[in-house]
Amino acid sequence: MIRKIWDKVMNREVISYLIFGVLTTLVNWVVYWIMVREAIDYRAATAAAWVVSVLFAFIVNKIFVFQSYDLHLRIVRKEIVSFTACRAASGVMEMVLMVIMVSWLKMDEYVSKILVSVVVVVANYVFSKVFIFQKSEEKPL
């Protein structure tokens, strides 16, 4: 039974999402770390890191993870709007969770960042899978 669940969950899409999710998270963390190191408030650093990582994530998720090769303007526009809206929702979730953990619970900001990142990666996969990318029969050129 566990083997069946494992085989169903661990497929090319999930594995590539995890790989690119880690890379997207690293982009987010590096931008965050650089900004905090430069004495920029953690809230501003979180927002800037989110913007940069969303741009990176859209490209790799569209092409490599969900293999959405349709480049028709109508489709790409829909994907970008949906992706941005869903990432905005997870960005708000990230900011709220960071404020709760750092400001209210007085947790270390880096520990908080790691915990929040796990929650955000899972939420973003669900958003992308369910709401954003549609499989296309067209293959890349």
Rank of each mutant, 00 (worst) to 15 (best):
I2H: 10
R3K: 11
R3N: 09
K4C: 03
I5N: 00
W6V: 10
W6Y: 14
M10Y: 15
N11F: 12
N11T: 00
R12G: 06
R12M: 09
F20L: 05
F20G: 02
G21N: 02
L23G: 10
T25W: 06
T25D: 05
T25H: 01
W29C: 00
Y32G: 00
W33R: 03
W33D: 01
I34A: 11
I34W: 13
V36M: 07
V36C: 08
E38I: 05
T46E: 09
A47C: 10
A47I: 15
A48F: 15
A49C: 07
W50A: 00
V51W: 14
V52G: 06
S53N: 09
L55E: 03
A57G: 12
F58K: 01
I59V: 14
I63K: 12
I63R: 10
F66L: 06
H72C: 07
L73C: 04
R74E: 11
I75Q: 11
I75P: 00
R77S: 12
K78A: 12
E79R: 01
I80L: 15
I80Y: 03
V81L: 15
S82I: 03
A85K: 11
C86G: 15
C86D: 05
A89Q: 07
A89S: 13
G91R: 04
L97E: 02
V99G: 07
M101F: 15
D108C: 09
E109I: 12
E109A: 06
S112T: 05
S112A: 15
I114C: 09
L115D: 00
V116H: 04
S117G: 15
V118W: 03
V120A: 07
V121D: 02
A123K: 02
N124R: 02
F127S: 08
K129G: 02
K129R: 13
F133H: 01
K135H: 13
K135F: 11
K135C: 03
S136V: 06
E137P: 01
L141G: 10
